[in-house]
Computed example of a mutant assay.
Amino acid sequence: MHDTPADAAIAPPSPWIGRRLLGLVYDLFVAVALWFVVAVPFVLVDVAMSGDVRHNIGPFSLLQWLLWLACWAVTGLYATASWRRGGQTLGARPWRLRVVPLDGPAPTRAAVWRRYAVATLSLLAAGLGFWWAWIDRDRLTWHDRAAGTRVVRLPKGS
């Protein structure tokens, strides 16, 4: 389906990738706060197991891998819940960015988790999926395409 000039006038503009990355930086602060909270029980278990407060969770320990998984999961819960409830994370709000489905009223639970998983892989690949938006004709990232969503920039005052 091709956009007609009337459809293009109605659709909010796609944001520049820099705005999206700045929103991601803002969300990093929220994620780090969540990670601190999630880490507390892991540190307490580590102290109980080792008997030493100065002991660090080892780089190849099961506890460390579980901590990474818990941090990834809690960040995913934050992001996916935000996208399902209004389409905005805390980092997206000041930049007036909103995740919207390409079709339908709201992204499905499966779509937002697929978006989060592909965005994670994109970040692990040096952000290639984000940089892809610079050459994509619709300014969509890999995770936008995978989830059937797009990010729009809201008008001022919304």
Rank of each mutant, 00 (worst) to 15 (best):
D46V: 05
F42D: 05
G127N: 00
S122K: 10
D138I: 05
T149M: 05
L140S: 01
T75Q: 13
N56Y: 12
L128Q: 05
A126F: 13
A11I: 06
S158D: 06
F36S: 00
T120D: 10
T120A: 15
V112F: 07
R114H: 06
S158T: 04
D3R: 13
R109K: 05
A111Y: 00
A31C: 01
M1W: 04
L44N: 13
G87Q: 10
L66F: 14
A147L: 08
R145C: 08
H143S: 08
A126C: 12
D46R: 07
R85K: 14
Q88N: 06
I57W: 07
L124V: 09
S122L: 08
D103R: 12
S158N: 07
T75L: 04
G91F: 00
W131R: 00
V151S: 13
R84N: 12
T89A: 07
A133G: 11
D138P: 06
T80G: 13
R85E: 15
L44W: 14
A79I: 15
L128F: 02
S158A: 15
H2W: 08
S158P: 05
N56S: 14
S50V: 09
L121C: 13
L97F: 02
A73P: 01
G51D: 06
R109H: 07
W72L: 13
A125C: 14
A48P: 05
T80L: 01
T80A: 10
L121P: 09
Q64V: 01
L97Y: 01
A146W: 00
P105V: 15
D144T: 03
R145D: 06
A48E: 10
F60Q: 13
V43A: 14
T89Y: 02
D3T: 09
L28W: 11
P101C: 00
D144Q: 06
T80N: 12
V37F: 02
W132C: 04
P15S: 05
T4R: 14
A81K: 08
T108D: 05
A48F: 12
L154T: 09
W113M: 06
A125S: 11
L28V: 14
Y78K: 14
W83P: 09
F36P: 00
A48Q: 04
P5M: 04
